[in-house]
Design a protein around this nucleic acid. Structure first.
Lengths: 189, 189
DNA sequence: CAACCTCTATCTATCGATAGGTGTAACAGG
DNA sequence: CCTGTTACACCTATCGATAGATAGAGGTTG
């Protein structure tokens, strides 16, 4: 019988792994479950990602890149600091309400003490790059121009924290609308 | 040969399970690892907690009880709303800096979509009870008396969210002092 | 003796990972 | 156009380790 021709399942594997990790956590995902969902054998997943750590890094790296790409150039962001923060919140809102998933790096961040070091490093990188993005964008707003670098950094970290925490709380309570109730800070002059 | 007399490892099992779950997540913990750390056989863990779900519920319930007990009676809390919030933050600070662990229910909350339903329910209960505690305590403060119930609830949920998120961000970035940088809101009249 | 606690021993299922085989496509030389 | 070679993509089969869970023996205590 004819065999299906090779079709490069790499992206599908990455997509599936990301969704599963965001739902079940790193330790809740196995090569076999990913393979089954994709429609291949687990050895095919190992073909692209020889170890689970390598797969985790690839998923986290792509997630981080897509996240930053969606945020866009921080130098092009709004002059209104609250609109800048809203860009980040919008991504969390989409994750919660549309995808019904955790933020990948929020999930990995919770498990960080038990991750292979290369995955932990990539998780760290996600938060570093996102706080850098926020600091840059905020520094160009009307509000931000009057603030110290340290104040901007604090605002960035608080926004990221509240975003991750809001996902956890809203999902635990079983009601996505709670995200909206967690009205985040208004920055004030 | 004489065998050690029966000594009821139940509390030690619960302690060990809690610490492990707070470090590795629910799916990162096994009966064998808990048993090894306690110094018993895995069947002894099953003696007290026949299923992993039962163990998870017991850990989460005890954690919630201890959390609320440490907070104390919400009616006896400070008249200063910011001091009320600080009580909750202090527990997160202790978790991060002293214990070097996640909040149990922050961890379980991230994994909530993959937990046995009884464990998910107990996680939900943690957040409900804590937001109730905050609403009650805040309602008796100078600030709170002037607010609507809905405003109090929002403040409660935001405080819990920022607390859980700050643990994730600070641990991911590998620096507990970041918790202090995430200066949380000052409530204002 | 009876209740309780911990053990040995074992089960089936699944884990991450590896070795080695096979069909497919692209390309080379004739 | 035909054939031989090679790289690639995915497979079957299997490994040792570990997962959660169970049955039943035996020591301890009251």
């Amino acid at each position: 019988m004819s065999r299906k021709s090779a079709q490069n399942y790499e992206v599908k594997i990455l997509d599936t792994a990301e969704t599963m990790i965001r739902s079940r956590g790193y330790n809740g995902v196995s090569f076999r479950e990913i393979a089954d969902a994709v429609g291949v054998k687990s050895s095919s997943v190992h073909y692209y990602y020889p170890t689970k750590g390598a797969l985790g890094v690839a998923v986290a790296r792509r997630y981080t890149e897509n996240f930053l790409k969606t945020l866009g150039n921080p130098e092009d962001a709004s002059n209104d600091a609250n609109e800048v923060l809203e860009k980040v919140r919008e991504l969390a809102r989409y994750s919660l309400k549309q995808e019904k998933l955790m933020c990948l790096c929020g999930m990995l961040g919770a498990e960080v003490a038990d991750l292979p070091s290369e995955v932990a490093d990539q998780t760290r990188s996600f938060f570093l790059l996102n706080s850098d993005w926020l600091v840059t964008a905020l520094s160009r707003t009307d509000w931000g121009r009057a603030q110290t670098e340290k104040t901007l950094r604090k605002a960035a970290l608080k926004t990221l924290s509240t975003m991750e925490g809001a996902l956890i709380v809203a999902r635990s309570l079983g009601d996505p609308e709670i995200f909206e109730e967690i009205e985040m800070d208004e920055l004030r002059a």
